[in-house]
């Protein structure tokens, strides 16, 4: 069909539509004009029937647009369910999904007994546990520091000598081998301390309130005690 012919048909169809509109309006205009109110009276049966129709119509009809939307939602939900069910039937997908929640490669579960560390209290805890050394033997310099929030370690070094000081939250359970023949009780500024030697490393541990202090070093006992006594 040529473009001209198409346009021509459209013109004819427009003409038909226009004539159809006029025809129906004329038809109903004539009927409207011919209505004489005194002419028309409905029977009692008709009035009852209309009343019943009105009563039934008061029951809300589901809105078609919403039915359409709900059908779409149900259809989408069904499609998603099928996709998920199909994906989960594959072992590899199921395992991958599970790894988001559980680390399947880890053989044990870490339990954090420390104070709960959050981004908000991290700085606060770090300052609380940071050891303030009042005495550092001559020639030693800071080797490294490490902090996880509820504990703080500093290590000083000089040639082959070193010492580390750890200040941390007192663990719920902490045991000291009092039967160790190399161990002895030492008073640190009025607090009970415990000195021991393990693998040629001298270890001094004491607690003040809920904080545990540890000094480990290959330095002699007197130097370690001096470091401990000057710790704030």
């Amino acid at each position: 069909m040529s473009k001209d012919n198409k346009n021509y048909i459209n013109n004819i169809d427009d003409l038909i539509d226009s004539a159809a509109n006029e025809a129906v309006s004329e038809l109903f205009d004539n009927i409207d004009k011919s209505i004489d109110d005194s002419d028309i009276s409905f029977s009692e049966n008709h009035t009852v029937a209309i009343d019943n129709i009105l009563k039934i119509s008061n029951v809300e009809k589901p809105h078609k647009a919403h039915i359409g939307i709900n059908k779409k939602i149900l259809l989408i939900a069904a499609v998603i369910s099928i996709i998920v069910a199909t994906a989960f039937s594959v072992d590899a997908v199921r395992n991958k999904f599970g790894e988001y929640f559980v680390n399947t490669h880890q053989h044990n579960t870490d339990l954090n007994l420390d104070e709960e560390i959050t981004p908000d209290n991290y700085s606060l805890l770090k300052n609380k546990y940071k050891p303030d050394l009042g005495y550092i033997p001559q020639g030693f310099h800071l080797d490294f520091t490490d902090s996880s929030g509820a504990n703080y370690i500093v290590q000083y070094i000089k040639d082959d000598k070193c010492f580390s000081v750890c200040k941390s939250k007192m663990p719920d359970f902490h045991s000291i081998d009092t039967e160790d023949p190399n161990a002895e009780r030492i008073d640190i500024n009025g607090f009970d301390g415990f000195f021991s030697i393990q693998n040629d490393i001298n270890i001094l541990t004491w607690t003040i309130d809920d904080i545990m202090y540890t000094v480990e070093s290959n330095l002699d006992k007197e130097t370690i005690v001096k470091i401990a006594e000057n710790l704030k």
Partner: peptide, 13 residues
Amino acid sequence: LFFTPDADRSKRI
């Protein structure tokens, strides 16, 4: 979701 309250509906009818 399935029913739309339309107080004017019966009045309109």
